[in-house]
Design a protein around this nucleic acid. Structure first.
Lengths: 196, 196
DNA sequence: GTCTATAAGATGATAGAC
DNA sequence: GTCTATCATCTTATAGAC
């Protein structure tokens, strides 16, 4: 499950560069010409690897999603540490993004441009957020039962708060160009989830 | 202060339509041709009102900012109700956006496309978030002193949490097409600011 | 896999008539 | 204020040679 067909060298470089530029500018502001210039090839060569722009978009979205959810580790009911670990693993890419002052979350950027996206990307973005919501809800619900977290109210509502706060903070951080914007955000979320 | 030179009928319609489309699609996905079609005029006529696209962008951003901050009412130190009112007034446009399933915050969308924006828009977007941060910090700080809110930690950190959560939630709501996504978000924020 | 050449359409913008 | 006409440039994409 979650078989991610490995990309060739050029295709991977294209995916990496496209991801990087979209996180800075948005999907509609990155062209095949931009990628060609960066990699020192011609736009026609890009179409060999990714026939359409939406193919490229779907590839980078799948990779991003895979990186976000397949590295969290097992959730073991009753084992508080497994939930703390999964939560901390989930924050690894967030902490990384926090330091990149001109980038924000790929899926957040795509979400902002939602109505202008090709249909397959629309579906992929929706699904990312749904998957994230389901995972976080389970993490918080079972994690609270296991004693890893402590908060009032239902886990689903808290999952929405966590996802929204991180997404919004990453966006505002980029617009303000402040690589330290998220420091206090992460502290605040910790305080909300683990008061004492 | 805050003199907003009134726009003529066509210019206002252009600003309204541009705002609406950008909130759905993003700045780079809305063209003069889109606006011309909507209003039944020619693209050349748009250039009469707004010589460049960035002129139009700045106009809609200023209007949006004015609508967000000039309607909050006075903050009266010691008067808890004035802070509760200002907070609730701040949420009026948020509640309105919450119901529009395919739109998100204009400034959030522009923030997502930040690196691709013309320089004046970049500066305007940065400034919006800075102004919001300053206003919210004061609102929460003085409001807590007045007894309108109750929370731990410093007001600046809480202001970041509030702004980020709302921004992120509005974005995710659009991507999920869920007009009810924000219901629990607003409840959760209330619980965080006014526990008991 | 990468190239040249090219197409067909979109895009932001200007000049000048009405 | 709005129009027609026009522009230079960019954008995604294809055909076919190497």
């Amino acid at each position: 499950m979650n078989v991610m067909k490995p990309l060739g060298k050029t295709a991977a470089a294209l995916a990496d560069t496209f991801t990087e530029l979209v996180m800075e500018r948005g999907y509609n502001a990155v062209s095949y010409a931009d990628l060609a210039k960066r990699l020192g090839i011609r736009t026609a060569s890009i179409h060999y690897h990714f026939p359409t722009k939406s193919d490229l978009g779907m590839t980078v979205l799948r990779r991003y999603q895979d990186g976000a959810f397949s590295t969290l580790g097992p959730l073991v009911p009753g084992d508080a540490q497994s939930y703390r670990n999964a939560f901390e693993n989930m924050l690894i890419p967030v902490r990384s993004l926090a330091k990149m002052q001109s980038s924000s979350c790929l899926v957040g950027v795509l979400g902002a441009e939602f109505a202008s996206l090709p249909d397959d990307l629309k579906a992929g973005v929706s699904q990312f957020f749904e998957t994230q919501q389901q995972f976080l809800t389970r993490l918080l619900d079972e994690g609270r039962d296991a004693g890893a977290f402590a908060f009032d109210g239902d886990a689903e509502a808290m999952a929405k708060v966590i996802a929204s706060t991180l997404q919004g903070a990453i966006l505002i951080k980029k617009a303000r160009g402040d690589a330290h914007y998220m420091d206090s955000i992460l502290d605040s979320l910790n305080a909300i989830l683990m008061p004492d």
